[in-house]
Amino acid sequence: MVTDALKTIARPSDAQIWAALAEVPDPEMPVVNLVELGIVREIGWVEGGLVVTITPTFAACPAYEVMGTSIVECLRMLGVEHVAVQVRHEPAWTSEWISEEARQKLRAAGMAPPPHHQGDLIQVLLYPVECPHCGSTNTTLRNSFGTTPCRMIYTCDDCKEPFERFKPL
């Protein structure tokens, strides 16, 4: 039928969808987007429309409802009318999923990116943390908790600037 043909033509490619999703900023750290943070896990078409699967960073992350709304709006701009955002907790999000590019962007914005940890969080938390402003590793932890569940607060003992660090998880 003609309408079916139109639907087929109107449906954007997966590459276009991923590109659009890569324009959705993280609500609390807008310098990085939801794809490079590893929050968007999967896209797939079902009969009723498109399903986007996301995995929030921390279990209690209060931002994920906003993320869902932003995703729906962004895909509507691309012409996808029916989008369902599904939250999946397993496998659990890990900071290992953050891309190298996103780590660079975080650092440029003054936030220390999480170190790679290969699953050993206890060990990695003992390593020195590099100040994102001056590069010194002469830094002190001020608080294991910060302005969002995924951040902790440090100060640099050389340039004296405070900075936040994205928690390894």
Binding site: F58, A60, H89, N143, F145, G146, T147
Partner: peptide
């Protein structure tokens, strides 16, 4: 102030875990 932030985060995490 640091502990205000810390306890607010502890609370948020625990309630998030309860939800799971």
């Amino acid at each position: 102030l640091e502990e205000d932030i810390a306890f607010a985060n502890l609370a948020l995490d625990e309630i998030g875990h309860a939800r799971l």
